[in-house]
């Protein structure tokens, strides 16, 4: 508990740092002093706070979504971007943008969620077709499925001149986050809380169908609940800030090594670590080449894939 509070403290410091850096001048002094204060306050309210909140919410959401996926597939290397979920969500966004461009963001997100759900369900279906699958075939199938779905998406995006928007969904970027344009992420946050409430059930589901059934769990409904949470969180994050590759894979794996997979205990850590990692990457992306900023998707792509490789190559004796 003490350690958890310490981690919370670190994340709050990171959030504070994230609030204070950026293109516009914004220091504690300028906030407190009276005459340019109004302007600085404006920046803070309209851009900085929403941005930092968006970072925390999406980092938390994606990390938890990754953990849920790993429980449901009983595989350590699965997360929304290695299961076709993200790509299906972008396809959904594209379809709704083509068919009904005027609908409110919430509706767009719901459509994307439905696509994400369908894509993930298809992934689980294909997995069942594969005989004698090894732990590593599972993410492989997911990545391939994602590739196929995104080929379809790219095709239509190209045909209808929407490559620009597609790019925004596929690479995470917080620079466009302003007040009024990130609130969907609160939906993701609500779902994260829901996941915490169902933590025991999800942990049980992670022990496999037989064990879960023996303990009186309605396995199918828990799997469905988990899939809905994952799909909606992914859709909300993809729709507002875009994709952050491998986030949901790294964080749960690290936490699992630290303290195991009892989600009642590990979920707060996953949430905090997810937020902390994205905050750090975002700060790096903003500082390294100021005043320009490198999108979070690119930074996460480098950090995430490097860490994923380390996990893969480190754990290979155990997996082989």
């Amino acid at each position: 508990m003490k350690r958890l509070l310490l981690a919370l403290f670190v994340v709050m410091i990171l959030a504070l740092v994230s609030l204070l850096i950026g293109a516009g001048d914004l220091s504690l002094a300028s906030l407190l002093s009276s005459w340019p204060g109004e302007n600085a306050m404006q920046v803070l309210l309209v851009s900085r706070i929403p941005r930092t909140v968006a970072i925390v919410l999406s980092g938390t959401g994606m990390a938890v979504a990754g953990m849920i996926m790993q429980m449901l597939t009983q595989n350590r290397f699965v997360e929304p971007s290695t299961a076709g979920t993200v790509e299906s969500a972008s396809l959904g966004l594209l379809v709704v943008t083509l068919v009904a461009p005027g609908v409110p963001p919430l509706v767009k997100m719901l459509v994307a969620s439905a696509f994400a759900l369908a894509g993930t369900a298809l992934f689980l279906r294909i997995l069942r077709l594969i005989p004698l699958r090894s732990a590593l075939t599972v993410p492989l199938v997911g990545i391939m499925l994602g590739g196929i779905v995104s080929a379809v998406t790219t095709f239509f995006a190209y045909r209808f001149d929407l490559l620009q928007s597609l790019n925004a969904w596929t690479t995470g970027d917080f620079s466009g986050v302003l007040r009024g344009r990130y609130e969907l992420l609160w939906v993701a946050f609500g779902l994260t809380v829901l996941a915490y409430l169902a933590a025991d059930r999800l942990t049980l589901a992670g022990m496999g169908r037989d064990v879960a059934t023996n303990l009186g769990l309605r396995y199918r409904s828990v799997v469905s609940l988990g899939l809905v949470i994952v799909s909606m969180v992914t859709a909300a994050v993809v729709a507002t800030v875009g994709m952050m590759p491998f986030l949901g894979l790294i964080v749960p794996n690290v936490v699992s090594m630290m303290m195991g997979d009892n989600m009642r205990r590990s979920l707060p850590w996953i949430a905090l670590l997810g937020a902390g990692l994205v905050l750090t990457c975002d700060i790096v992306g903003r500082v390294i080449y100021a005043p320009y900023e490198i999108p979070i998707g690119t930074v996460m792509g480098v950090v995430g894939s490097a860490l994923f490789l380390a996990l893969l190559l480190k754990g290979r004796e155990r997996l082989a």
Partner: peptide, 15 residues
């Protein structure tokens, strides 16, 4: 029984 989650013995029994 092969549980892929990392659970402690106490966790498992308490479940």
């Amino acid at each position: 029984n092969r549980i892929s989650s990392r659970l402690t013995v106490r966790d498992l029994v308490e479940f």
